[in-house]
């Protein structure tokens, strides 16, 4: 299987109150195309920072992040934005829908950015897949948490990403809704053949992936295959 994400010797330090704070210390791993992966660790272990770097939302202090063969380290923020638009899908803990856009429009944005055709039909199709075909004209504030997260799922898949990053996708949801959303994520992922990287401290969720990468104090402490293969 081909490697979609290559992380090697990744370091991230912040300057805080005059001293250097090492958030990530020499992280190395590869992620193969089509796999599902979980990054787990206690709060403050640096897992979200790692996600941000993998997705090209931030730049590393040192080391390499290679997404689909493109080294993100040397790219400007604008170019990284285009890489994101092309290859990456996002799911956030707090949904991060644009409050001023309807559910449908939120799904359409990545496609519109790429200037594709049949945007509306494809977006409606996606909304249908997440079970919200009839809620397309609603604004995020008019939707429940679970519905919002389903919209954001539809948006994440709208640009047919190569890789999907999910940051505590169930963190703001109750158990029952969580279950539905998680099922959707994995179903859609399988259907589209997308690579999934999710950050969570929910071990039960993590256990549903192929591989669990454990982070503690900014260091990679374990990298295990699960029995889901």
């Amino acid at each position: 299987m081909e490697t979609i994400l290559n992380i090697s010797n990744l370091n991230k330090t912040y300057k805080s109150a005059g001293r250097l704070l090492t958030v990530l210390d020499n992280i190395n791993f590869n992620i193969s195309e089509g796999s599902t992966n979980a990054i787990v660790g206690p709060s403050g272990s640096g897992k979200t920072t790692l996600l941000g770097l993998c997705a090209g939302l931030d730049s590393a202090t040192a080391g390499i992040v290679e997404l689909n063969g493109i080294s993100l380290s040397n790219l400007s923020e604008d170019k990284r934005a285009q890489v994101r638009n092309q290859y990456v899908g996002f799911i956030f803990q707090s949904f991060q829908l644009l409050p001023t856009l309807t559910a449908l429009e939120n799904v359409m944005v990545p496609l519109e950015l790429r200037g594709e055709k049949n945007i509306k039909a494809r977006s409606l199709d996606l909304l249908d897949k997440v079970g919200l075909a009839d809620r397309g004209h609603h604004y995020p504030a008019q939707l429940s948490g679970g519905e919002q997260q389903r919209v954001s799922l539809a948006r994440a898949f709208s640009n047919s990403p190569k890789i999907l990053f999910a940051d505590e996708p169930t963190g703001n949801l109750d158990a029952e809704t969580s279950e539905k959303v998680v099922k959707l994520i994995f179903d859609l992922n399988r259907e589209a053949g997308t690579t999934l990287v999710l950050v969570t401290h929910d071990l039960e969720l993590a256990a549903k992936t192929h591989r669990i990468i454990r982070i503690k104090g900014g260091k990679l402490v374990a990298d295990d295959k699960t029995s889901n293969e």
Binding site: R84, N85, Q96, L97, P110, N159
Partner: peptide
């Protein structure tokens, strides 16, 4: 959010 989605 827009930046995340790839807006320059």
């Amino acid at each position: 959010i827009m930046r995340c989605m790839g807006v320059k």
